[in-house]
Simulated scan of single mutants.
Amino acid sequence: MSNKSELVRRLLPGIEAVLLEEAMRDTQNARTKAQRERSLELKEVGWLEGELPRIAAAAFRWLDSRLDEATAEARAQGLMVPLEASIDLLSPIGRILDERSYSQALAYLLSPSEPHALGQGPLRAILQHIASKSASAAPAIESVLPFLAQALTEPERELVSELDGQRGRTDIWIEVPASAPQLMVVMEVKVGHIITPGQLERYEAACQRRAHELRLPPDAVVKVLLTIEGEHEAPGWTSVEWQDVAALLSFLAGSPGDGAAFLRLYLAAILRNFYGLSSAPKSRAAKAILLSYLRRARIISPPSPITTPHE
């Protein structure tokens, strides 16, 4: 076997569709680059151009095969339930990218006292994920897990800044347990909007005032930025992506009851409207995105349903 054939044989199994498309675009300019960088001979570039169709076909077969495997595994784990929904919660009412709708729906699901019959499951899954991303917050989060049934989850908590007197609101405010809080979580939700100047500083000041009232140590005050692509980062804030929320809560979406049906359609809205995901992607790019999501979801989602009593 020639060196060239051996090289192609070894390349085939590991080429992703997205990387392949990038390689094909790069190769179109390879002759000019070779002359400029003097790193490739033109005949070698010509050989690579000739091999690209065969590499592409093999890569697309590889993508289809891996997606089939990932889909089967995800279905067994419950991750496909929202993706297989025929409709989503917010598209029919024209709220596809309405930040407030997504935020209020999530606050509802994160409140164990609401009548969704999902118990502590959603709140527990999200808090444990935050703990996995923030070593400083993990001990405080773990300490309150036995008290999640007593959590207070408040959407749109009104604030008046002592810094400039401006009024504002936090998207989701959580205290556990409500009677004598040992943990405070403030979530700022973003769906395409930017963080305005001074916004996070006002929230931080409000957190400090409340923490002082409760005599909470700094590590018991957790600030979370929830965004589509992790595009916002700020010191002292833990970044969480919407696709992680979907993966973390999908295991509950197949449960019986109206609350699970609400959750299923809500997660379908997140996955479709933010990421363009569906259970039957048409294009190769959509297949690659779905494969990436399913692989990520398998890593972070609970290995088995979290059972929680309904207090």
Score class of each variant (00 low, 15 high):
residue 1 M to N: 06
residue 5 S to Y: 08
residue 7 L to D: 00
residue 9 R to K: 05
residue 10 R to I: 02
residue 14 G to K: 11
residue 14 G to C: 09
residue 15 I to N: 05
residue 18 V to G: 10
residue 24 M to V: 07
residue 28 Q to F: 00
residue 32 T to C: 00
residue 36 R to D: 12
residue 36 R to F: 13
residue 39 S to I: 08
residue 40 L to Q: 05
residue 44 E to L: 14
residue 44 E to C: 09
residue 51 E to I: 02
residue 54 R to S: 08
residue 54 R to A: 09
residue 56 A to E: 15
residue 58 A to T: 00
residue 59 A to T: 07
residue 63 L to E: 02
residue 66 R to Q: 13
residue 67 L to G: 07
residue 68 D to T: 13
residue 70 A to N: 11
residue 71 T to K: 10
residue 74 A to N: 06
residue 75 R to T: 13
residue 78 G to S: 09
residue 80 M to H: 01
residue 81 V to W: 00
residue 82 P to W: 04
residue 83 L to D: 03
residue 85 A to E: 14
residue 86 S to V: 15
residue 92 P to C: 12
residue 92 P to E: 02
residue 93 I to C: 03
residue 94 G to C: 04
residue 97 L to Y: 12
residue 98 D to S: 06
residue 99 E to V: 09
residue 103 S to R: 02
residue 104 Q to L: 15
residue 104 Q to H: 09
residue 106 L to Q: 09
residue 107 A to Q: 13
residue 108 Y to K: 07
residue 108 Y to M: 11
residue 110 L to N: 05
residue 112 P to R: 11
residue 119 G to P: 14
residue 123 L to N: 14
residue 124 R to V: 01
residue 125 A to E: 12
residue 126 I to A: 06
residue 131 A to Y: 00
residue 136 S to D: 11
residue 141 I to C: 06
residue 144 V to T: 15
residue 152 L to S: 08
residue 155 P to Q: 07
residue 155 P to G: 07
residue 157 R to G: 09
residue 159 L to E: 11
residue 160 V to Y: 07
residue 160 V to P: 05
residue 163 L to Q: 13
residue 165 G to E: 07
residue 165 G to F: 06
residue 170 T to F: 10
residue 170 T to R: 02
residue 171 D to N: 05
residue 171 D to K: 06
residue 172 I to Y: 09
residue 172 I to A: 10
residue 174 I to H: 08
residue 175 E to G: 01
residue 176 V to N: 04
residue 178 A to E: 13
residue 179 S to M: 05
residue 179 S to R: 11
residue 181 P to G: 10
residue 184 M to P: 10
residue 185 V to N: 03
residue 187 M to S: 07
residue 190 K to R: 08
residue 191 V to P: 00
residue 191 V to A: 02
residue 193 H to I: 12
residue 194 I to S: 14
residue 194 I to Y: 13
residue 194 I to M: 08
residue 195 I to T: 11
residue 195 I to N: 07
residue 200 L to A: 03
residue 201 E to C: 02
residue 202 R to F: 13
residue 204 E to K: 08
residue 208 Q to Y: 00
residue 208 Q to I: 03
residue 209 R to P: 00
residue 210 R to C: 01
residue 212 H to L: 06
residue 212 H to D: 09
residue 215 R to C: 01
residue 219 D to H: 15
residue 220 A to Y: 05
residue 220 A to E: 06
residue 222 V to L: 12
residue 223 K to H: 05
residue 225 L to Q: 06
residue 225 L to K: 01
residue 228 I to D: 11
residue 231 E to P: 08
residue 232 H to L: 04
residue 234 A to W: 11
residue 236 G to A: 03
residue 237 W to P: 03
residue 250 S to C: 01
residue 251 F to V: 11
residue 251 F to W: 07
residue 252 L to N: 00
residue 253 A to S: 15
residue 256 P to S: 06
residue 257 G to F: 04
residue 258 D to C: 00
residue 258 D to Q: 03
residue 260 A to M: 05
residue 261 A to M: 10
residue 266 Y to H: 14
residue 268 A to R: 05
residue 268 A to F: 08
residue 276 G to R: 10
residue 276 G to H: 01
residue 278 S to I: 00
residue 280 A to F: 04
residue 280 A to L: 04
residue 281 P to A: 03
residue 281 P to V: 02
residue 283 S to Q: 15
residue 284 R to C: 01
residue 285 A to K: 15
residue 286 A to C: 01
residue 287 K to E: 09
residue 289 I to L: 13
residue 292 S to W: 01
residue 292 S to P: 00
residue 293 Y to F: 15
residue 295 R to L: 09
residue 297 A to Y: 12
residue 300 I to D: 10
residue 304 S to R: 14
residue 307 T to G: 05
residue 309 P to W: 04
residue 310 H to P: 06
